[in-house]
Design a binder for these strands. Structure first.
Length: 222
DNA sequence: GCGACAG
DNA sequence: ATCTTGTCGC
């Protein structure tokens, strides 16, 4: 699948992805977890615009630590618009992950999955384009709603759109705001939470995402 | 009509 | 995303 480069194309693709039922990937035994992150210039405010400078980083980890990393300076391809995040970040994210070696078995990124106006957020789009299972992790839901879980490490609670659970609040660290874990491409609620949980290393943010963010920021400020 | 709205 | 100081805690 190619990257949808226009709003009309992306929206059309999202409608198809929402109905797609790719074979599910299940975390079993040893698997490599990747994390991808894009950072922007300090001081950038508002929605931004196409051409904004951006720095992308991707890392891949096994249970011992980072086994691969890739850094790519680039630019945003569109302004930020809720529901169309893929238009802004997709091309650069896909680029940095494609160059990552070894390739991960599952990829973590900042974006939603089914929690989306058309039920196909960036995690689904990127996974479909890269043909890689994905799990989304965000600070807050886009469209879904649900009560917070107890302040206990590992506590989870459902996030719904109407009657459908589309994501899970997960307390990734006691005493901190919970994160939203989104099943993405080829993953379901249980797998997404399992991957996110296993990727924790004592911090609120799953380690592959933390490391990717650190790397992207270092690239930004030499 | 108004506000909210992943990063 | 990024802007921001101090502050509480390990």
């Amino acid at each position: 699948m190619n990257w949808p480069a226009t709003e009309a194309h992306l929206v059309s693709s999202q409608r198809n992805l929402a109905r797609a039922r790719p074979p599910q990937w299940t975390p079993e035994g040893q698997y490599l977890v990747g994390g991808a992150w894009i950072c922007f210039p300090r001081g950038l405010s508002g929605k931004g615009s196409a051409g904004d400078r951006a720095w992308a980083a991707a890392v891949v980890m096994d249970r011992g630590g980072v086994v691969g990393r890739c850094l790519v300076p680039g630019q945003a391809s569109a302004p930020y618009v809720p529901g169309l995040l893929a238009l802004r970040l997709g091309p650069l994210l896909a680029d940095v992950v494609r160059r990552l070696a070894p390739q991960p078995d599952v990829l973590l990124l900042d974006g939603t999955g089914r929690d989306h106006p058309r039920r196909a957020g960036l995690a689904l789009q990127l996974g479909a384009v890269l043909e890689l299972p994905t799990v989304g992790v965000t600070h807050r839901p886009l469209t879904a709603s649900g009560d917070w879980p107890a302040d206990v490490l590992g506590a989870a609670s459902p996030l719904f759109i109407g009657p459908d659970q589309v994501a899970t609040w997960l307390r990734t660290k006691q005493g901190t705001h919970p994160l939203v874990v989104h099943p993405g491409w080829r993953t379901d609620l249980a797998s997404a939470v399992a991957v996110a949980t296993r990727s924790l290393a004592g911090h609120r943010t799953p380690e592959p995402l933390r490391r990717a963010r650190q790397a992207a920021r270092l690239l930004r400020e030499p």
